[in-house]
Design a binder for these strands. Sequence first.
DNA 1: TTGAGTTTTTGACTTTTATCAAGGGTTTGT
DNA 2: ACAAACCCTTGATAAAAGTCAAAAACTCAA
Lengths: 187, 187
Amino acid sequence: MKQSLGLFENITGVSDAAKQKFISFLEEVKAEKGHKLEQEGQVSHNLYYIAEGSARSYYVRDNRDITVSFSLAGEFVTAMHSFITRSPSYETIETLEKSIVYRISYEDLQQCFLDYPDMERTYRIILEKYYIALEEQLIFSKFKSAKDRYLELMENKPKIIQKASVGQIASFLDMTIETLSRIRAKI
Amino acid sequence: MKQSLGLFENITGVSDAAKQKFISFLEEVKAEKGHKLEQEGQVSHNLYYIAEGSARSYYVRDNRDITVSFSLAGEFVTAMHSFITRSPSYETIETLEKSIVYRISYEDLQQCFLDYPDMERTYRIILEKYYIALEEQLIFSKFKSAKDRYLELMENKPKIIQKASVGQIASFLDMTIETLSRIRAKI
DNA sequence: TTGAGTTTTTGACTTTTATCAAGGGTTTGT
DNA sequence: ACAAACCCTTGATAAAAGTCAAAAACTCAA
């Protein structure tokens, strides 16, 4: 049920007309575990809202798969660089488990912005929140040891520890699988 | 001269009326080297545009001063977390050299957004660019050695190498002063 | 259920970077 | 010009994390 997805639950300042328009553009995607929402090499055409489940963004470098971010239910995700610049993505986004996501295309989103400035404002405010979250992640990575980075993840996104593999978590935390395994052994 | 600051040079899609309004809010600040634009512990009230010179954002942790970012002429800078959330800043922003910056207050910027949706769109687009730049920085930091991180900085922001001290650069690149010194010795 | 394939853990060793300490330059104020 | 303070470099050593290799544990399909 599109209406019940909870997307606008914590969002104020958007007119009902704008909400309706936005929701009318949404397309539901039911994805099995490991389903690729966006693929490396292709332009990312959609912004996703995760209603249920979780996802992982990663790219491949020197045959190694490196996790850039994990996204949980209630969050938005896309291959930002590609989505914004309309150029091929260097990252792939896949579900970590059976998930329900809603997507809106780039064009439809822009249309919403043209029709409803209040929708553009909301998008802007969400983007600001994502920006400072990213900034915090960068600052955090600067002065924490491998162990502290793992403890922080356990604290903030414990669900990830359950859903993702050691390799996926290790690359996200910027350490080897072995190091992560040893850290876990000591806790 | 406010009109000649080049702020809107590469920006299209903003009406002249919006530009005029924005410019009318700008306040010029001529700062000597080391002048603090924003202070840790206080709410960051302004968004800055660097017309001439450069700046550094940093915070203090365990008595060490850790550089978060360097900003050059033509770029915007603020203590984003504080500016957005209206809570005290954990970072300080200071000029790296004699600089000319223009600032607009949070309130005036919001007023611009209310009056001119095209201005809000432009802000949103700039924010998106800053977001992907930050994302790239995070990805980059994930898989590069200390030496590669330094070479990358030399490539992308050579001016920083001249203007900032070894300590400031080292903390930005997430390594000790000694490691950076040894890297420089070998190039 | 079994066994092939995969993922995770463990061990020995190496590399990278941090830490501590000392020395050499620069800058700055008197 | 001189000394104090600061900044940068260099060296010795230590700690953290990476690499390589093999064993153990788990997964899943025949």
